[in-house]
Design a binder for these strands. Sequence first.
DNA 1: TTCCTCATGTAAGTACGGTTCACATGAGTT
DNA 2: AACTCATGTGAACCGTACTTACATGAGGAA
Lengths: 212, 212
Amino acid sequence: MSWSGQGDHTGRRGYHHGNLREALIDAALHLIAEKGPAGFTIAEAARAAGVSPAAPYRHFRDAEALLAAVALRGFERFAQALAAAWSRARPDPVASFENLGRAYLGFARDEPGYYAAMFDAGLPLAAHPALLAAGDRAFGVLREATDVLCARLSKAERPPSLMVALHIWAMAHGIASLFGRGDAARRKLPMSPDDLLEAGFLVYLRGLGLLD
Amino acid sequence: MSWSGQGDHTGRRGYHHGNLREALIDAALHLIAEKGPAGFTIAEAARAAGVSPAAPYRHFRDAEALLAAVALRGFERFAQALAAAWSRARPDPVASFENLGRAYLGFARDEPGYYAAMFDAGLPLAAHPALLAAGDRAFGVLREATDVLCARLSKAERPPSLMVALHIWAMAHGIASLFGRGDAARRKLPMSPDDLLEAGFLVYLRGLGLLD
DNA sequence: TTCCTCATGTAAGTACGGTTCACATGAGTT
DNA sequence: AACTCATGTGAACCGTACTTACATGAGGAA
């Protein structure tokens, strides 16, 4: 092509869009963030990208496939965010955990579109192995962190690190789902979700025998 | 018409249905359980109830209103289930907690339609005060249980019981959301959700200073 | 350059659900 | 017996899902 492509992410460059697939994922992401996983339509995403309603079907078989692409990109960025938070404070495992928790809630808060596509869309994971794998990679970060943590306990009192990772994940996900998304749909709390999660971690880790 | 309505549970009694509102909630409940909160339509619920597609609008302004009615009934039954589990083992607070956890996960497992309407539908709670109130009543059961539990701690080491209730709720909800629903959409675990939650409770309560 | 080819976009069509409105029905009341 | 009003119907309009036949133009081969 001639007029070299620049940043305009909805911009047409002639008859061919040039980057429609990514533009559709972006459009869907914003629509999901605004109106929930059920509130986006292929037609509306096409409109946002400036193409005809039939164009998206060249890239996605149906709406679920587009949703799955959003979720896949979400899991990848989620894993990156968690890994960054984890390594940022690596010398101190407990501080790293608090970082992980903040990163988890921060992602849910700042990227509601991704988060909803990942966890609220009800995508059949069995039908999307790539999604399952990407989710496992994100969970792997958590798992690595709990491994390090559990290693500080004597073998006799060391719990299964997988179980600990699942507990941590569940509490973070529970707080994010119930309280952690924008003013849109949730309840008022006497403390911030971040503080709530941090306090929960501390109690839980104390219960494991760490801390104290 | 003539052939008088018989036992058919969606049964017409003539031109008028007789109980359409409840029949629509029931139909929506089953559709949600099968296909997720986004997978039900007013038209399909009307078809299941044996009425024309316009009839539901006499009872519900739009699909969201019908969804909210499902969620409302869900919260009421949820509160009942939790209260029953809590009182069943009241002498022993820890056993009661385990009962509560099993009841929580059991409800999510056995009533996926209600659970999805309550927590996955993305209903704007601000627009449905009755839902918020019903949710608070269910949470109240949890809150009462943690009050009793916290009362066993000396005042000096007693944590805010509201915070404890939120932690418990978050972990239960996290496990239910991530692992607790049918084979449909979730991951494989090395242990049952019930056992996972019970273990999490025990670690957490130990961290509070109860147990041991 | 010229032409070929194929990925990618468009237009038009079918089917269906959402929603509204004018109208029909019949249960309860008086 | 007649009135009334909640409740259900049918038809209409619009938007979206998805399909199919056709159009465009980018990149490669001659």
